[in-house]
């Protein structure tokens, strides 16, 4: 007998849970059906959301691509440490050993004055003129290759440059490609801007969805009143609107992904032509898996949240009262 009761009760729970999912699944589908029954209005709302999401999406994809380019140029981040004139080659080796101990240094190499002159001779083609020199005017130099680090490279290099400069016997520290340095700083500023922009546009999405849901609730006011009259709670009445917001956001995310893809496609031709002019080849990469997922889920979440805020506020105002 007790077993019978228990099994009946557990069947009851099973039913309740099935019922719960059934209801949500049904609302999910029916709210989509409702949106599709007014395709133009739905598409326009999704397009606005898509545009708002596509702007940070495009900037993000540009920054990512630019980063990958600059990574290819990390060689150019090497620092050249020039010793004071009159320093001996053994002093250069001692100093280079000392620099090599730094944790932020990947490798060091001494370029002696004579070696430097030889390189310069080959590179400049001024062999005869240089032969006329009695003394080698070049100092000994140490080429320092920084270790790749998670930290902001432009800051890191600045610090390293200052510290190397302060070492005894060092005359000058030059960064071979200051432009890479500046470029990375620029990218950094850009991705900061991107974050702010993304927040602003997320707020815009909330407003767009919220307003769409507000209008939708206005249209469905009689239905909402009736539902409340027969015992529908705020949460019950709100549910289809939340799913509506979810669909708007997801649709907006998909449109944004399409826009970013089109942007990449449209840009890759010209960029590759520029690269080809420099005898190189460059492929623009589209958003990767994680970023795509962020775009779609982020869109859906924003849509849901916009609907939640709007519907919660609106529905509390709709009470079936005769006192209006």
């Amino acid at each position: 007998m007790p077993r019978d009761t228990r099994s009946r009760r557990s069947r009851g729970w099973g039913n309740a849970i099935t019922g719960y999912f059934e209801r949500h699944a049904q609302t999910l589908v029916s709210s989509l059906g409702r949106l599709l029954s007014m395709p133009l209005a739905t598409f326009l709302t999704m397009a606005v959301i898509g545009a708002a999401l596509a702007i940070p999406g495009c900037i993000y994809v540009l920054v990512q691509n630019a980063r990958s380019v600059s990574v290819a140029y990390t060689d150019a981040l090497d620092l050249s440490v020039y010793l004071k004139a009159g320093a001996s080659e053994s002093q250069a080796h001692a100093l280079s050993h000392q620099i090599g101990l730094r944790t932020d240094v990947a490798s060091v190499r001494v370029v002696s004055a004579s070696e430097g002159l030889k390189q310069f001779r080959e590179w400049s083609g001024m062999g005869v003129a240089l032969d006329a020199l009695k003394d080698n005017p070049l100092p000994h130099a140490i080429i320092v290759k920084p270790r790749a680090s998670q930290a902001d490279p432009s800051v890191m290099l600045d610090v390293m440059q200052r510290e190397l400069m302060a070492m005894p016997g060092v005359d000058q520290v030059s960064m071979d490609a200051a432009w890479v340095h500046r470029f990375l700083a620029l990218l950094d500023a850009l991705s900061r801007t991107l974050r702010i922009l993304a927040i602003l546009l997320a707020v815009a999405v909330l407003v767009v969805v919220g307003n769409t849901i507000r209008l939708d609730i206005d249209v469905r006011r009689p239905e909402i009143e009736v539902t409340k009259l027969v015992g529908g709670s705020d949460a019950f009445v709100r549910r289809p609107f939340l799913y509506g917001g979810l669909w708007y956001g997801l649709g907006g995310g998909l449109i944004a992904y399409a826009v970013v893809s089109a942007f990449i496609l449209g840009l890759s031709g010209p960029i590759d032509r520029v690269a080809a002019a420099y005898g190189s080849h460059f492929v623009l990469h589209n958003l990767q898996g994680g970023a795509v997922l962020t775009l779609l889920l982020g869109g859906a979440l924003l849509g849901w949240l916009g609907a939640y805020l709007s519907a919660t506020w609106q529905l509390a105002q709709i009470e079936p009262s005769s006192e209006k």
Binding site: A16, E223, V230
Partner: peptide, 26 residues
């Protein structure tokens, strides 16, 4: 009456059951 005119009779009558979460078969 206060019916929901945009949906069939079945949906109108089922509304209180949908609200209280009765399973579909029941």
């Amino acid at each position: 009456h206060k019916l929901l005119y945009d949906r069939p009779v079945w949906d109108n009558v089922a509304l209180p059951l949908i609200i209280s979460g009765v399973a579909r078969k029941e």
